[in-house]
């Protein structure tokens, strides 16, 4: 479309909008924040106010005592992830945000399952633990506690398998993650 007197051609029709993308997949955001009081409240408050649902949230120290890492997962089908990260960036105490690429990321979570072994299930539960490389960390006559680490999917799978035996309770940390290879997350 050669418009009169313009030196270069640009058709408005060719312009593509960059809308808030809904990717449809799970996202893991790794957020470095200043280790100051109230920072977690600011993040949680932002999510509540803007209507973003957090699936999991894990907070812990980093190698630098003035900096903490917040790892959170959310569903890219429900939220425009770029709007989430841009809003997070506006928090003055947020230093860095990475939306981790699934293939280049190591993600792990820790979970504890208290399973009833009233019936004859104990041997079977132990077998499942072995397959999942889970540890039995507590045993009573009527129950065991299994410790599992792995990706969220692995922990989900473990849960599905032990649930029929009678899942008394479980506790999960939510995923933490770090990027593969030499460079920093």
């Amino acid at each position: 479309m050669g418009e009169p007197a313009t030196k270069e051609v640009l058709s408005l029709d060719e312009l593509e909008a960059v809308a808030g993308l809904r990717t449809g997949r799970k996202h893991i955001l790794s957020i470095l924040v200043e280790n100051k009081p109230g920072v977690l409240t600011r993040i949680a408050g932002l999510f509540a106010r803007r209507g973003f649902n957090i699936d999991t949230l894990a907070v812990g120290p980093t190698d630098d005592p003035t900096v903490s890492r917040v790892t959170l997962t959310l569903d890219g089908a429900l939220h425009p992830i770029d709007q989430v990260t841009k809003q997070l960036h506006k928090l003055v105490n947020v230093l860095k945000i990475r939306d981790l690429e699934p293939e280049e990321t190591l993600a792990r979570e820790l979970a504890l399952f208290k399973v009833s072994t009233d019936g004859a299930g104990r041997a079977e539960v132990m077998q499942i633990c072995e397959i999942f490389r889970a540890k039995i960390v507590d045993v009573t006559k009527r129950s065991v506690i299994c410790e599992v680490t792995g990706t969220c999917d692995k922990v989900d799978a473990f849960e599905r398998l032990v649930r029929p035996f009678g899942l008394i309770e479980m506790a999960r940390t939510g995923e933490i993650a770090i990027s593969r290879g030499r460079s920093e997350t």
Partner: peptide, 15 residues
């Protein structure tokens, strides 16, 4: 000046 305003309500073609 605020990146979060871009494409918040209306998708921008040239932000």
């Amino acid at each position: 000046i605020d990146p979060a305003e871009i494409s918040k309500n209306v998708p921008a073609h040239i932000p």
